[in-house]
């Protein structure tokens, strides 16, 4: 299959997300289950990484600020904006492309080769709508709050590291409040929503259309992670270009 055929099949798959569910209650229940898997299941790793990324960024900038004439409170300002605009959504997005992307594609791939998807179809269930819809909508709903938590932890990590490098808490807080634009939070939300959609839909596409056996599931899982990461970086560039 060439790229255009893949794109066409991907679009047809997305169309089924907007068809009426066979059973709204079961669909809703599945969305909550997936929100739990994707959101709560990723909270720990996203939290730890965000905390340390914020801390490392703070140490790095504190080191560079040592040799400049900039006031020390600027550190809080730099951490805040870099975490909100870039680090929290993009790093978390890449992390989710690995964790959630591989998980979704291998789950669907296994369902495909063990004929569970065929079983749904024979029952008369629209398998794309029932299996893919809740996963994608759950990601779109749960990833933005997850990234808000990541941003909060990133800024907190920065605070802890900054205080350890000798910057006073008051200075850091002053920097955090300095020239705050709520528009940056809007950019973060746009990025996190788009990244969530990309990660989940690409993983679903790769997993749902698996043919063959265990090796193909592994390959599909790898493709989901690689393509998810590439598309996150590409869309990161375009969204930043468009919104800043």
């Amino acid at each position: 299959m060439n790229i255009l055929e893949h794109f066409g099949r991907y679009m047809v798959m997305l169309k089924d997300l907007f068809t009426r569910p066979d059973n709204k209650y079961m669909y809703g229940k599945e969305i909550f289950r997936q929100m739990n898997n994707i959101g709560v299941g990723s909270l720990l790793i996203v939290g730890i990484i965000s905390l340390f990324v914020g801390a490392v960024t703070a140490i790095q900038f504190a080191y560079q600020l040592d040799t400049s004439f900039l006031p020390p409170y600027i550190l809080g300002f730099i951490i805040r904006d870099s975490v909100i605009i870039e680090l929290a959504p993009t790093l978390s997005g890449l992390l989710l492309a690995g964790k959630v992307g591989s998980n979704l594609s291998s789950e669907l791939g296994t369902m495909r080769i063990s004929e569970q998807i065929d079983a749904l179809e024979i029952m008369g269930v629209n398998s794309r709508n029932y299996l893919l819809g809740p996963k994608i909508w759950a990601a779109v709903l749960i990833v933005p709050p997850l990234i808000i938590i990541a941003a909060f932890l990133g800024v907190s990590g920065g605070y802890l590291a900054a205080v350890n490098t000798g910057i006073s808490p008051a200075m850091y807080e002053k920097g955090l409040m300095y020239m705050f634009k709520s528009y940056n939070v809007f950019i973060m939300m746009v990025k996190s929503t788009v990244f969530a959609f990309l990660v989940a839909s690409i993983a679903c596409y790769q997993g749902y259309f698996v043919k063959g056996g265990a090796i193909e599931i592994g390959k599909a899982s790898t493709r989901a992670v690689v393509l998810g990461s590439i598309f996150i970086i590409l869309f990161d560039y375009f969204i930043t270009l468009l919104l800043t």
Binding site: N23, T110, M111, S114, E115, Q116, D118, A119, M123, G124
Partner: peptide
């Protein structure tokens, strides 16, 4: 051939699934 039971569901939930759906 391989039963195609849903891994994430118990035996009871598997059998009940078509009833829940339709």
């Amino acid at each position: 051939q391989g039963s195609a039971l849903f891994d994430s569901m118990t035996v009871e939930e598997n059998v009940q699934f078509p009833l829940n759906m339709f």
